[in-house]
Design a protein around this nucleic acid. Structure first.
Lengths: 352, 352
DNA sequence: CTGAAAGCGCTTACAG
DNA sequence: CTGAAAGCGCTTACAG
């Protein structure tokens, strides 16, 4: 059973392709109700599905949006992608999701492919590094609606939606300091980008406002695997006592921190207070995880990015662009506030 | 700056479109090295990207696979999708991911759209219910390579890759019984499908082998939200004492279980032993979650589905189909073993 | 109003 | 070997 084409229906109904096209697409056409029904029935019976390749080739638009992220399985991405897909679908747009594995070359490949598919717009959480800036300029210049999320490039004209990382980190660090932290360590990933640099800057700012200066050894950058974290953190936490605080650039690093605490017999928050970005991902079935979790005796505050808003704004931007509006850059280079969620159980005061 | 076409390059290079096409696609053509370079340079300078719509229309193949799941943000899906995308990309196929929100009508829409895009194959984790069986038959008859994952329809010719739910559940329940459980409760979702029905059957089988019969009141089906779970489970667990066991159809329900335990002052595994399918998803920052987690005093065993294998086999099936092989149904209606991961901390014996 | 014809941007069989 | 021409399946401006 071959795939039915418009002409198959036209032939059987004894009308022109034009007529069939117009009936199926609900365009104005004067045609008898019986003929119209016959065409619709034939389409159903033959399981007709318009060839979107052919249609798009003709229309030069696909009602499709490409979403390219560095890792769709991590952090808030699963939720974000789902929300984004839903919002776009409500507006009649289909979403094509691609992974780059944080690899710039793969990122170019994926985007080239999507553009070749004539996506109407792009949402990109870019891979690490600045290697693709030139490439993105090409896309920007070609006029494809395109917006970055989560990560961005300062000093470029590209639209972006990111969390106000500096303010969010400042609030988080302020909370630690309000809890009486006097010795503050920043734990971050070795791979840097402006978004995480801003987190560090926010922590610095909060500290300095209290007359505390972060020295080089207060900033620990390492790989995100647990072994690296233990190795890097152990010397710092060995002397941990009340008044010791740890800011986690990402809660992906939390389990490594708890491992370290367990190893040296410290607990959170009694010996070390922590606050970090984004959700946790422990595995309660792994004995090692479980044991380390026991080092956490109270829920820890987290900085939660507003993925719902991110998805909604990205959608709004694309829709506006599709309508031909070209909202000025300033309005669409936005930093969204994040929420510092301090569990009620915790002692300490949340900053205003 | 308009999008460059093949003809733009041909015109500037003073050659035919044929020549340009052959050079860019590395097809055999006798052409001077200089001309070849000139064409390649022009393509680069004009940022030429082949129009995949046009190419596919012509080739009747897109080197694209559609993946349609009921919820890409839950359970093992983020990992599975990432792995699948990677495996397919290694073979030169692009992956288009769609969400159906477990809604059959939306599922049809999404698949229709993907087929209209001439995807070469489909991987589907179908929405609940049997309403789309007829629709899937149409796809199957049309010969589009197509394989179901996670959920399936018995008695249909569709290929599928699912976990051997019955065997996995049997092992899990056997573990509980080996731990001395004499009173076994099955906690499942209200919405049923063959995959989860098989889990129930597996638990029944394990119980009966020990002379234990699950009665109606031993099977608790409710919504997956925590309030429903507490309401449904409280009467059962109020009398919990050593020898009480709980089988979780999905660990999505775990937090509701722990809530219940906390409410009534029971702990896991001292008062209630549990085992369940798939990873946990607690939020350590929510005081309520954290408090409930304290009811869990040891890591709990989980039944882990083999997502890596699932992704690899789905890829293998599609590739074989694309090559024109049509492996017989039996070989591709597969139930994959799951692993019962029993943390070493736990007392009790893992069945062979 | 209606339908034949042109055209979207490619690829490839085929005539020169 | 080479390039003009046909054709993939649609949509739509336009001639009748």
């Amino acid at each position: 059973m071959a795939i039915a084409r418009l002409s198959d229906i036209a032939q059987r109904a004894g009308v022109s392709k034009t007529a069939v096209s117009k009936v199926l697409n609900d365009r104005p056409i004067r045609i008898g109700a019986a003929k119209r029904e016959e065409i619709l029935k034939l389409a159903r019976d033959l399981r007709y599905r318009p060839n979107i390749m052919a249609r798009s080739l003709n229309r030069r638009s696909t009602r499709t949006v490409g979403v390219v992220v560095y890792d769709m399985s991590t952090l808030f991405y699963p939720q974000l992608l789902r929300t984004l897909e839903l919002a776009l679908a409500c507006e009649g747009y289909q979403t094509l999701i691609c992974n780059t594995e944080d690899n710039p070359a793969r990122e170019r490949e994926q985007i080239d492919n999507l553009l070749g598919r004539l996506v109407d717009g792009l949402v990109v959480a870019p891979a690490c590094g600045v290697g693709n800036i030139e490439y993105f300029r090409g896309i920007h210049d070609q006029g494809t609606p395109f917006i970055l999320i989560d990560r961005y490039f300062p000093d470029e004209p590209f639209r972006f939606l990111v969390t106000d990382n500096q303010a969010a980190a400042r609030n988080g660090a302020a909370w630690l300091l309000d809890c009486g932290v006097r010795k503050l360590t920043y734990l971050g990933e070795r791979g840097r980008n402006p978004s995480v640099d801003e987190r560090l800057a926010g922590v610095r700012a909060a500290a300095e406002r209290r007359g505390l200066v972060l020295k080089d050894q207060d900033i620990v950058l390492c790989d995100t695997n647990r072994i690296s974290i233990r190795k890097a953190l152990q010397p710092r936490l060995a002397q941990a006592r009340p008044g010791t605080g740890l800011f986690l650039e990402s809660n992906r690093m939390l389990m490594g921190v708890l491992d370290t605490c367990r190893d040296i017999g410290k607990t959170v928050p009694a010996d070390v207070r922590i606050v970090g970005f984004d959700p946790f991902g422990p595995d309660l079935a792994r004995p090692a995880d479980f044991a380390s979790l026991r080092a956490l005796t109270e829920p820890a505050p987290t900085i939660q990015q507003d993925t719902g808003r991110l998805a909604a704004l990205a959608t709004a931007y694309l829709l506006a662009s599709f309508k031909g509006e070209s909202p000025d850059a300033a309005a669409w280079q936005r930093r969204l506030p994040a929420k510092l969620v301090v569990p009620e159980d915790n002692k300490g005061v949340a900053p205003a």
